[in-house]
Design a binder for these strands. Structure first.
Lengths: 194, 194
DNA sequence: TTAAATTTTAAATTAATATTCAAATATGCG
DNA sequence: CGCATATTTGAATATTAATTTAAAATTTAA
């Protein structure tokens, strides 16, 4: 790979990271090419040298963060410990992303509005994979006899729903620390599984 | 009240109801004045005779549906039965709105993007009231000794989060009927409260 | 019936952004 | 250095949808 190509790649990632912070502040719809460019001290025209269009940039941001989150989850899932310990740890990881990457990683947002058909398919596939990691964690507990679950699908949806909702109300300056929150959610969810 | 005023009011409600269906299909952002007008067999200019602007129309739609949902919940809350029965019934009602008024009643959407300061304040107040009805249902159960809850706030947030999330995945043609869904969620949530 | 009030229309305007593009500039290499 | 390639710019253009407006059509009520 040529030097210039390497530099281009690095720049692309810089743009991605900046775009992610803008998206987290303004949402996908509210983030303008102008603001993203300004943040990078360049003009919006340049962005089109690196990305086909806004949708492409948004898509890559979403993928970037969601892939990273999925990888983190996978590491936890494949780590040591009881099923309960693993699930609690996955919940904690997920909550971190829900809070810190509020918008970019937002599983709530309707992806149909932003992405074209190809992108949509890939996003949905990634989201499905992400969800399946929780299924695996639950299944593991069931197999080991740690968990008892009547309908794993519903429980998984309750886990994702209740945790994704956190981004609607959690404020760092509120009465609960993030650690307390994780502990609390872990307790309640484990209760559902016994 | 003059006849013409009465007719205007009726027309306003017609517009509201139509706008609500359009919003439910396209979301707040995706609903255009053009499409709403077309649906009513009028031109978009007319809408401005009845509503100040798009934000005003969106706001009134949101309020209309959310108020109605809140009233329904209130009726249930004040009805007869054990705390468990009442809470299950409230959950069922909420799920109906989550599914049927997918977008308009969407508590997930960031209201800051659509509403002006005055509207925002009133929307947030209404949402707070809506949440408080669940708090009351939980509290009732605690007082009666039916429920045991360590942190009612967290439980309420888990209820709202997990149920609001339903709109992301529920499909009427799926394997679960709405009634099974309500039963299922009721069971799980009650488990959290004992 | 007819004048005033109400309602609707169609076209023009505004506004906000995304996107394109030709020219200018910067970079790295022989 | 000086050429070729890569990058950036700023201005022009395109797009989408909201909003305004003046005139036309309709309804109401005396």
């Amino acid at each position: 790979m040529k030097l210039s190509e390497k530099r281009t790649l690095k720049k692309k990632e810089q743009i991605l990271l900046t775009a992610i912070t803008v998206i987290n502040q303004r949402g996908y719809g509210g983030a303008t090419m102008e603001e993203i460019a300004a943040e990078l001290l360049m003009t919006k025209g340049s962005l089109y040298y690196y990305f086909k269009n806004k949708g492409d940039l948004m898509y890559q941001c979403h993928n970037f963060v969601l892939s990273q989150a999925a990888n983190d989850l996978k590491d936890v899932l494949e780590g040591e410990g009881t099923a309960e310990k693993i699930l609690r740890s996955m919940i904690a990881t997920h909550i971190d992303y829900v809070i810190d990457e509020k918008e970019t990683n937002n599983l709530i947002i309707e992806p149909r509005s932003f992405f074209d058909d190809y992108q949509l398919e890939s996003v949905l596939k990634l989201r499905k994979y992400y969800s399946s990691l929780f299924d695996q964690a639950i299944e593991k507990g069931v197999i080991l006899g740690e968990f008892y679950v009547e309908d794993p699908f519903i429980v998984r949806m309750m886990i994702l729903g209740s945790t994704n909702w956190i981004q609607q109300w959690y404020r760092p300056e509120g009465r609960m620390t993030k650690d307390e929150l994780k502990q609390n959610f872990g307790d309640h969810i484990v209760k559902l599984l016994k």
